[in-house]
Each structure stands twice: as C-alpha cells, then as structure tokens.
Amino acid sequence: MTIGSPPDSYVLVMTHNFQWDQSILSYFIHHRPLYLGVLGPRRRTKRLLSSDTLPQWISSPVGVDIQGEGAEEISVSIAAELIQVKNSRMTDYYNLKCMTHR
C-alpha cells in the first residue's frame, strides 16, 4: 500500500472494511502522523492492531465525548477533537485522552 503523508498530517481511519482499516493502521504505525484517530469502539481498534493495548498516541475512539448521536453530531465531536489537538500541546492532549479512556 502506498499512501504517503507528511509527518504533520492528521489522519482519521474510518472505512467500513476491517482489512482496509488494518492495512491503513499498519502503515501509519510505521509512518507516524501528527495525529492518528480511529472511528469506532476502542475494542475494535485493539482488534485491528491485534493487541490488548493501544499506543498512547492513537486516539480511539476518535472525537470529544459530547454524547453525540447520528452522523452530524459525531462529525461535530470529531471536528472538535481535531481543533483541540491543533490548539494544544500534543503531550497535554494525549495525557487527557488517556485519563478519560481507561
């Protein structure tokens, strides 16, 4: 798979195909972007990576927890997370994210 992206990229993985998501995640594990988020439950992301733990720098589930329902509200929560990441120091952001998804 040839994707290619600059290291300051924001990447969201959200296809509806498990194998594609697995391939995409595998690529970005080795070509780390500035931000990597995965749509869907955390347990699915763990299955995608064949691991019981996720690297701290992967955001899963993606989005700010606003209890969103439906595609529109989920989109707003994802956009909010991307803005939050852009406007904060990455280490502060990931520390906060880890505390909320234990």
Results as ranks from 00 to 15, higher is better:
Thr100Phe: 10
His31Ala: 03
Arg89Ser: 01
Gln22Tyr: 06
His101Phe: 14
Leu48Ala: 03
Glu72Arg: 11
His30Asn: 10
Glu72Ser: 09
Gly40Gln: 03
Thr2Ser: 15
Leu36Tyr: 01
Pro61Gln: 05
Ile58Glu: 01
Lys86Arg: 15
Gly4Trp: 14
Phe28Ser: 01
Gly37Val: 02
Arg44Met: 08
Glu81Cys: 11
Leu82Ser: 02
Leu48Val: 08
Gly40Phe: 05
Ile78Phe: 05
Gln19Arg: 14
Lys97Thr: 13
Gln56Ile: 13
Tyr27Val: 00
Cys98Gln: 12
His31Pro: 02
Leu82Arg: 09
Phe28Lys: 06
Tyr27His: 11
Ser59Tyr: 00
Gln67Pro: 10
Pro61Met: 08
Val76Asp: 07
Pro33Phe: 05
Val62Met: 10
Asn95Val: 12
Ile24Leu: 11
Leu36Cys: 02
Val38Gly: 01
Leu34Ile: 04
Leu49Val: 05
Tyr10Gly: 05
Thr91Glu: 11
Gly63His: 02
Tyr93Asp: 08
Tyr94Ile: 09
Glu81Lys: 08
Pro61Thr: 01
Val13Met: 07
Arg32Gly: 01
Val62Ser: 00
Ser75Asp: 11
Cys98Ala: 15
Ile3Glu: 09
Gly68Pro: 10
Asp92His: 13
Ser60Asn: 07
Val76Phe: 11
Leu39Pro: 02
Arg102Val: 14
Val85Ala: 09
Trp57Asp: 03
Glu72Gly: 10
Arg102Pro: 15
Ile29Ser: 06
Pro6Leu: 15
Met14Glu: 12
Gln19Trp: 06
Leu39Gln: 04
Val13Trp: 03
Ser60Ile: 06
Ser77Met: 08
Tyr93Gly: 08
Ser23Asn: 15
Arg102Asn: 10
Arg89Pro: 02
Pro61Glu: 07
Ile24Thr: 07
Leu54Lys: 00
Tyr35Gln: 05
Ser26Leu: 09
Arg47Asp: 08
Ile83His: 11
Asp52Val: 02
